[in-house]
């Protein structure tokens, strides 16, 4: 299963679901909804955390958190 953690800088994806129930509420509230398009824009030194564009703003999260977001490529 492809997750957000697999994207490389500049790549697009579309959120399809979540694998972690506790985190998913926070992520939903931050605008990461199924069907939304995301673009990976940066990663911090040593590749973690990552920054992505979603719902028109920049959101950052750790790689392990990104790995709970399932995506499909666009």
């Amino acid at each position: 299963m492809l997750t957000l953690a697999d994207l490389r800088i500049g790549e697009h994806g579309e959120i399809t679901g979540f694998t972690d129930e506790i985190l998913s509420l926070k992520l939903l509230e931050m605008g990461c909804l199924p069907g939304t398009e995301v673009i990976l824009t940066h990663h911090a030194p040593f590749g973690d955390p990552i920054a992505l564009k979603v719902s028109g703003y920049t959101l950052t999260m750790r790689r392990e958190e990104a790995a709970t977001i399932q995506i499909k490529r666009k």
Partner: peptide
Amino acid sequence: ERSYFIMEL
């Protein structure tokens, strides 16, 4: 609980 870092820039 587990620590997390989900933050707006």
